[in-house]
């Protein structure tokens, strides 16, 4: 499993600040701050992310609160808890996922042009 993730924040780790990258990031611990990825962010089952996220894709299996702008897809998996604002051309909410907040599927964040 660990092979498919370039970066992993383990269960007992807390990161406060800014994360940038171009490889898949799996969070099983806690991340607070901002995350800017050219790739996918996976909030694992035990993961807790409170952040402003810019990524290609976001998959939430654990807990997410904040804002996310994805160029491709946001997926909320059965059992997850999400709050905040999600922007992506495609948003998938599985049965059993819990989400409170706003969804915006109109503005594919391809190129940010003003508002």
């Amino acid at each position: 499993m660990s092979d498919e993730f370039g970066a992993v924040i383990g269960r007992n780790i807390v990161v406060r600040g800014e994360i940038e990258g171009s490889e898949v990031l799996l969070v099983e611990g806690r991340v607070e701050g901002t995350v800017n990825l050219e790739s996918e962010l996976v909030v694992g089952v035990s993961g807790h992310v409170e952040a402003d996220v810019n990524a290609q894709a976001l998959t939430i299996e654990g807990e997410f609160s904040g804002t996310a702008a994805c160029s491709d897809i946001v997926t909320l998996v059965n059992g997850c808890h999400g709050t905040g604002e999600l922007k992506a051309p495609r948003v998938v909410i599985e049965e059993g996922a819990v989400f409170t907040g706003r969804l915006n599927m109109e503005t594919g964040v391809r190129e940010s042009r003003g508002e």
Partner: peptide
């Protein structure tokens, strides 16, 4: 479970704390 790895293409600016490796 998974140990914490900051991959080659990842940059973290801030504070990292925890009990793992």
């Amino acid at each position: 479970m998974s140990e914490t790895t900051v991959g080659t293409k990842t940059r973290i600016n801030g504070r990292i704390s925890g009990t793992d490796r």
